[in-house]
């Protein structure tokens, strides 16, 4: 790899895209969930559970595909508990999500220690390798970042497009939005509010689980306690910055990923600025975005509100 400005820029962009991938995946899932009216703070737990089960499946089967399946199942396990609590039992969604984060952290740490003991050399699972797309990967700067990556990342781009189409161009997507904006009207129009919300929760689990799997099956190749360490919360940030739009989520994730990649680079180069300054960026920007969105309220009107059918 050549040094110089172009080389640094290329490496930085490629790293940003890699950092952005788990956030994008989890953010897409949360977008479905929030559009349907469920605010799931338990995204951290979904990702963690996804990371854990993808590792376990991949470790014992030595198959990446089974690892992915495990990741999805792990995510769905947590998201459907949250779905049940918020759709069927109408409980406070924030507290339920928080509790599930604790539960997921506890369960994954507990069973990981149980299976592998307290070791310094962490057990490794197979990881995906990058595949260069001919021609496109030769484009300077953006080529290596977008077209010389692992298949996971190509899948993510595909999913972003797919989510956009589903959410904005299909009847089912419109139904999801209606459920989040005005559940009673949606109900009166013959849409099953609880069914729609359950399906959104299911998608949230699949996507969040995939996001967690990316950490183990692509970025790291191992699992450790609290491997997500707040990535789920950053994914919540990405959803807001991306205004709950799939393409927006991708862009926001790349922005946040760039901040993260930049911070790593600054650390190795030994600048005098503490890395926390960069760590803080996404959160400060989110607060500012919330501030500037005063008046033009884009949050789904019924976000976080349980829908109780028999209440008037």
């Amino acid at each position: 790899m050549d040094t110089g400005l172009i080389g640094i820029l290329t490496a930085l962009l490629a790293a940003s895209v890699r950092m952005a991938t788990p956030l994008t995946l989890a953010g897409l899932g949360e977008t479905f969930s929030e559009k349907s009216g469920i605010l799931n703070i338990g995204l951290e737990g979904i990702m963690l559970s996804g990371a854990f089960f993808s590792f376990i499946f991949a470790y014992y089967s030595q198959s990446i595909l089974l690892g992915l399946l495990g990741g999805c199942l792990g995510g769905v396990f947590i998201s459907m508990i949250h779905g049940y609590l918020s759709v069927r039992l109408n409980v406070d969604q924030t507290i339920a999500g928080l509790a599930l984060n604790f539960l997921a952290l506890g369960l994954t740490s507990f069973f990981f220690l149980m299976a592998f003991g307290r070791t310094t050399d962490l057990p490794e699972c197979p990881v995906v390798h990058q595949i260069a797309i001919p021609l496109l990967s030769d484009i300077p700067i953006i080529g290596p970042a977008f077209f010389n990556q692992d298949p996971f990342i190509y899948l993510t781009f595909l999913l972003v497009a797919l989510c956009y189409v589903v959410l904005h161009r299909t009847e089912w997507g419109i139904n999801i939005q209606a459920t989040g904006e005005h559940p009673r009207a949606a109900d009166a129009a013959g849409i099953s509010v609880s069914g729609t919300r359950y399906r959104a929760a299911l998608l949230n689990g699949v996507f969040g689980g995939l996001g967690g799997s990316y950490l183990t099956l692509a970025l790291l190749g191992f699992f450790m306690e609290n491997i997500t360490s707040g990535k789920g919360y950053i994914a919540l940030v990405v959803v807001i910055l991306g205004r709950r739009h799939p393409v927006g989520v991708l862009m926001a994730a790349i922005l946040v990923g760039a901040a993260e990649a930049l911070q790593f680079r600054m650390q190795t180069m030994g600048f005098g600025i503490p890395s926390q300054v960069f760590n803080m960026f996404p959160y400060v920007i989110t607060v500012l975005v919330l501030l500037f969105s005063i008046g033009k309220n884009r949050t789904p009107a019924a976000l976080g509100e349980p829908y109780i059918r028999n209440n008037r």
């Binding site: 039992l89 409980v91 507290i95 509790a99 604790f102 506890g106 740490s109």
Partner: peptide, 16 residues
């Protein structure tokens, strides 16, 4: 980490 599991479970049960 068993204490985290118990805490999470407690909250879920109490919400339910």
């Amino acid at each position: 980490s068993i204490s985290l599991i118990i805490m999470g479970l407690l909250v879920v049960l109490i919400l339910g």
